Measured scan of single mutants.
Amino acid sequence: MIHRILNHSVDKKGHVHYLIKWRDLPYDQASWESEDVEIQDYDLFKQSYWNHR
C-alpha cells in the first residue's frame, strides 16, 4: 500500500517513474515504480502528487 509519492523521473524513452514511500516501511525501502504498474489507488496518488507540485 502506498503511503505517498516522493519524486518522479523521466527516462530517455519518455517513460515516467515514481519514487514510492510504502506504508509501514521506512524511507530507505522506498522504490521506483513505472507509471503503468498495477498498484491499488496508484492513479489517485499520482494525481495528488501532481496537484501539489
Rank of each mutant, 00 (worst) to 15 (best):
L44W: 09
Y18M: 00
S34I: 02
Y27P: 14
G14K: 08
V37C: 15
Q40I: 10
H8L: 02
D24T: 09
D36R: 10
A30L: 02
N7L: 07
R23G: 07
D43S: 09
H15M: 11
D41K: 06
H15K: 15
H52R: 14
H52F: 12
H15C: 11
Q29Y: 07
V10K: 11
A30I: 15
R4P: 03
D36C: 08
R53I: 07
I20E: 02
K12S: 13
R23A: 10
W50D: 00
L25S: 12
M1I: 15
W22R: 02
I2W: 02
D43C: 10
E35T: 07
A30K: 04
S48C: 13
K21G: 05
R53V: 12
K13I: 06
Y18G: 03
E33G: 03
K21P: 02
D43Q: 13
Y18D: 00
A30V: 06
S48H: 15
Y27M: 10
Y42T: 05
H52W: 14
Q47I: 15
L44R: 14
E35P: 01
V37W: 00
I5W: 03
D24W: 08
N7I: 06
D11W: 05
L6H: 03
H8C: 05
S34N: 11
D41H: 07
D36G: 09
E35Y: 03
V37H: 12
K12N: 13
Y27G: 10
Y49W: 00
D36Y: 10
H3P: 04
D36Q: 08
E38A: 09
D24Q: 07
V10I: 09
R4K: 15
R4Q: 10
P26I: 01
D11V: 00
D28R: 11
E38C: 11
F45K: 08
P26N: 10
E38N: 07
R23K: 14
Y42L: 05
E33P: 01
F45Q: 04
S9W: 10
W32Y: 01
L6S: 02
K13P: 02
K21L: 10
I2P: 03
V16P: 05
H17A: 10
Y42A: 05
H8G: 02
D11P: 01
M1R: 09
D28E: 14
S31H: 01
Y18N: 03
R53E: 11
Q40W: 06
H17V: 07
D36A: 07
Q29G: 05
I5R: 02
I20T: 01
Y49I: 00
D11M: 00
H52P: 08
K13T: 08
Q29L: 10
N7K: 13
E33A: 12
V16I: 13
S9C: 13
Q47W: 07
A30R: 08
D43M: 09
R53M: 10
Y42N: 15
W32V: 04
G14C: 03
V16R: 09
D43A: 10
D28W: 08
V37R: 15
D11I: 02
Q29H: 09
D41N: 11
D43E: 15
I20W: 05
N51R: 15
W22A: 01
H15F: 08
H52M: 11
W22H: 04
V37N: 15
H15P: 01
